[in-house]
């Protein structure tokens, strides 16, 4: 599929990317925005989602261009195709938003999330936790005699899977960054 480069004022999304109007299935999409890193820009994006009743599954933001003061916001959202189109059009309308990319339709992309797990336990369960961490390529970044903190990077599904396995082994706290995503290739 040819990449769909969505720019402000473009006629090439919502307008021309029409899908079957009768399909009301809920889709999950990963959107990447390039925005001016000015005060209030995140509030504008979040306010748009809450004000219009859209969903946010995950949201990540950080400045990626320090000289140009540009931040990249990665949002995982869900909705019917019509709602997804609306979300993109509404985002593109915000003045500090320079680019809106729908990584889900623009071609293959890589998605990664980082999570920290605190697993407390003794004896056999402690060893099992360490073994599982190894299988999932999670690193130990802190350890006491009764706990580990693991760092794991991967798709949200992989992190979910490890969390499920760690829960009976004493998973007591978890911190996740939300998804960061880039399209594949040049």
């Amino acid at each position: 599929m040819a990449p769909l480069n969505i720019k402000q004022g473009s006629t090439r999304f919502s307008a021309y990317d029409l899908r079957d109007p009768n399909v009301e299935i809920i889709e999950q999409h990963t959107l990447a925005l390039v925005v001016d890193n000015e005060s209030g820009v995140l509030a504008r994006v979040i306010g748009l989602f809450s004000g219009r009743g859209y969903n946010i599954d995950s949201l990540t933001v950080a400045e990626v261009d320090h000289t140009g003061h540009r931040s990249r916001i990665t949002i995982v959202t869900r909705g019917t195709p019509q709602v997804i189109d609306q979300i993109k059009a509404q985002l593109a309308r915000l003045v500090p938003v320079h680019e809106v990319h729908d990584l889900t339709v623009e071609g293959p992309s890589v998605q990664r999330e980082l999570a920290l797990f605190k697993v407390s336990g003794k004896g056999e369960s402690r060893i099992e936790a360490l073994r599982l961490a190894e299988i999932f390529r999670a690193k130990v970044v802190d350890s006491t005699l009764e706990s580990f903190v693991f760092e794991i990077t991967g798709t949200p599904e992989k992190i979910d899977a490890l969390a499920e396995l760690m829960r009976p082994l004493g998973l007591s706290e978890m911190a996740r960054t939300g998804v960061a995503a880039l399209s594949r290739g040049v």
């Binding site: 004022g9 473009s10 006629t11 919502s14 109007p21 189109d85 609306q86 059009a89 309308r93």
Partner: peptide, 17 residues
């Protein structure tokens, strides 16, 4: 405004301009 298009009613020929 591109966000006006297909917001409420699906149209056959959208023209942004």
């Amino acid at each position: 405004d591109p966000s006006s298009i297909n917001k409420v009613i699906r149209v056959d020929v959208p023209i942004v301009g």
